[in-house]
Simulated assay, not measured.
Amino acid sequence: MRFAPAAAALSLALVVTSSVGWAGQKAPSPRAAVLIAEGQSALAAGDTQGAIDAFEAALAVDPAHTPIFLRLAEAARADQLQGKAITYYREALNRDPRNLAAIAGEGEALVEKGAVEKAKGNLAKLESLCGASCPETQVLSARIAAGPPVRIQTAEATMPDTSVTQSN
């Protein structure tokens, strides 16, 4: 009986602590929110470097806001920098391992880079977390089915045959 008040207080502390952990993502600071909005509008206008600059400034203002990494990865993918995008997705996953958008985005960037087998690992992780019917799983599955994009080889990338042939 003497332990009942202590046990009740301890269980209350555990409930409050666990509910704070599951409360979700906090909102960004007001200055970071303005920079994120600037970055989104720049990305929508096709200005990927302007978007990256705005997102990096938002990250400097509010380094604890994980969704900024997802925005940076999206801008890097739009700029054809899949390796950099994967780095941003992995940073988001280090902060929140169950972030479905980061898992799916990393998988899509892997497919764009040609690493389809690694992307299938991300698909399996998504299916175990949210099932086959969740939007992230369906988008990544469709991207894997489509395969990596065809790389267009330019004339500058092809070296001409330098061997000399004798004509008769």
Rank of each mutant, 00 (worst) to 15 (best):
F69W: 15
V34F: 08
A73C: 09
D161T: 09
L129Q: 10
V16H: 01
P97V: 00
Q49S: 07
K84P: 00
R2H: 01
T48R: 14
S29C: 05
A13Y: 09
I152L: 13
F55N: 04
A60P: 04
Y88L: 03
G83P: 00
L10E: 03
A115K: 14
Q153Y: 12
F55V: 02
N94R: 15
G39L: 07
L12V: 02
A54T: 08
K118Q: 12
E56R: 15
A119N: 08
D53A: 15
T162Y: 10
A64D: 12
Y89P: 06
E106M: 13
Q138W: 04
V20K: 12
K26N: 08
N168T: 02
A78L: 13
I68W: 10
L129T: 00
A23Y: 14
N99Q: 11
V116K: 10
C134Q: 07
L93F: 06
A8Y: 09
E156H: 12
I103R: 05
A33K: 10
K118R: 12
I36T: 05
G107L: 04
R95K: 11
T17C: 04
A32L: 10
A73Y: 11
L140C: 06
G105V: 04
Y88H: 14
L93R: 01
P135G: 13
A146T: 00
A58C: 11
A23E: 03
A101N: 03
R71I: 00
N94L: 07
E91T: 13
A119I: 06
I86V: 13
A104Y: 05
M1A: 09
I68V: 14
S41Q: 15
A7V: 13
T154Y: 14
K125L: 12
A104M: 05
M159P: 05
V111R: 03
S141V: 00
S41P: 01
P28I: 10
E74Y: 10
L14W: 11
A37L: 13
A7G: 00
E112W: 03
A37C: 04
I144P: 09
Y88P: 02
D53S: 14
A23G: 09
L140I: 07
A85Y: 04
A60Q: 13
V116P: 04
E106R: 14
L129A: 07
Q138A: 11
Y89D: 12
V150D: 04
P148W: 03
G147S: 10
E56F: 00
P160R: 15
A7L: 15
A42F: 08
P135D: 09
L81I: 01
A45V: 05
A145E: 13
V34M: 09
P160E: 09
I144S: 02
R77A: 05
A124C: 05
P63K: 08
N99D: 07
E108N: 03
Q40E: 11
S133M: 12
F3N: 08
I68A: 02
R90I: 01
A145T: 08
A101G: 00
Q49I: 06
V111A: 02
L100R: 13
R71L: 15
T158R: 15
R143C: 00
G107K: 01
V116C: 08
E91K: 13
N99V: 01
L43R: 11
A85L: 07
P28G: 06
I52P: 04
Q49F: 07
A7T: 06
A58Q: 03
E108Y: 02
L140A: 05
P67Q: 02
